[in-house]
Each structure stands twice: as structure tokens, then as C-alpha cells.
Design a protein around this nucleic acid. Sequence first.
DNA 1: TCTCATATATAAGAATCTTATATGTAAGGG
DNA 2: CCCTTACATATAAGATTCTTATATATGAGA
Lengths: 110, 110
Amino acid sequence: MIGAGIKRGTAELAVLSILEEGPLHGYEMARRIEEQTKGALRFTLAALYPMLYRMEQRRWIRGSWETSDNGRRRRCYRLTPAGRKKLSPLRQEWSELFQALRRLKKVAHA
Amino acid sequence: MIGAGIKRGTAELAVLSILEEGPLHGYEMARRIEEQTKGALRFTLAALYPMLYRMEQRRWIRGSWETSDNGRRRRCYRLTPAGRKKLSPLRQEWSELFQALRRLKKVAHA
DNA sequence: TCTCATATATAAGAATCTTATATGTAAGGG
DNA sequence: CCCTTACATATAAGATTCTTATATATGAGA
């Protein structure tokens, strides 16, 4: 798995990206991020929950308590318009970072 | 320029990459990183000097005081064999991060 | 002399990650 | 019936690495 040192800031992009596909609760977000990145990117729930809280404060996502079929309470988050608007500049920024690092001598064969 | 949030961990790779080209002192490293990334990646010296110190503690780089032609004292760093060995797994890790983020819905057209 | 470029250094603070710990329900196996 | 695993959220303490602000000092050019 990718180490803690270099993955800072990825949670924000990961959460917004995952929520773009539809509303979701934290536990499932963590599972999907791990699944979709084939285990490369993995977040502990302890990292994810405070992040979700912060993103809600910034109005990028909005959470609501729901009760699932199996009777469990969970907090379902969905992207706000502001969150959706944040996505493309954020992706752009990551894209620029990749390019920048590639210029500092090839970052592998990526 | 790329924001502080997402560039964590890049300094390490940047320094090792720059030193791969030859020994260098901190001030010039900062200048070259900015130049080579066309201004996208920029480190303040206040971020760079402690980083160089930490990397020296880890034996990835080795510094020596030199006096330049113009009579200024400066600390010249060079890659150690250990530092050189660190470069390829580190690049690999970044490469995997890029791939992982790309899988979470395209990170722009990168 | 004043300012800019060179050159290094430290301090205080912010943000985001880590591991450890806590709580509670539901389902399945022995 | 009990134990373990999966589900689901939450907080605390600590590490790391970035930020801005500040300090020091020399050399060159206007």
C-alpha cells in the first residue's frame, strides 16, 4: 500500500470522486476506495470520519442520518453543488503535480 | 502553484531527484526545482532546510561545508548509495499513487 | 548607502495522516 | 448460547511536513 508520507491530500479527492457516483456513507466509501484502487489507496475510518466532518463544514458534502434495511444507523453523504464545482480544479491541481514530478526526472514509466 | 495540501511528501522525491544530477546546496536546489517544474512546484527554504537535515539523519544524503568562488559558505549535499537506492521504490510509490487516483475517475487528461 | 541576490537557520502554527481505543448492532458458526 | 466477524461511527494522542514570520550575514550594483 502507498505510504502515509506521500498520500496526504488524497482523501479529499478520493471522497469527492467516490461521491460523484452517488450518495454513500463513510464505511462504504473506505471499502470502495480500496476496491477501486486495487488496494493501493486505503484509508482507516479514523482518518476518514474527521475528514468527512471537515468537508461538511466547508459545504462540499452534506450528510444525513439514515436507517438502512438491516436497521443500522449510518450517515449518508452526498456531494453539494459546491463540492462538485471543487472537483475539477482539484483534479487539475493533481494533474499538474504529476506533470511537475515527471519533469524532475521520470517518475517511473507512468 | 500547487497548494500545500496535496504536495506533501514531494520534497523528498524532489531533493533526491535533483541530487541525482549532481551535488548541490539548498538554495540552488530550491531554484532548480522551481525551474524544472516550470514554477508548479516551489519550496520555501524554510521547508527545505529542515528536510535536508532529516534526510541527512537518515543517511540518504550527505552534506559538507564548502566555500564557493564568491567566498560564501554553503552546505553542499550529495546523494549517498542509500539515497540512490531509495529513489526507485519512491518513484514506484508515486507512480502507484497516480494510477490509484486515476482509477477513482479520471484525474483530468493526465 | 541602500537594496537585491545569495545563503542558512529557527520558531510557531496548521493540516492530515497514524495507531489505539471506545461503543453498539446483526449475523453466522460451533 | 456464546464467540467472532462484519457493520458503523467516534475520539484521542502522536508524528510528519507543510506554512509564514523572523533572524543573520556577505557580495554586488545603482
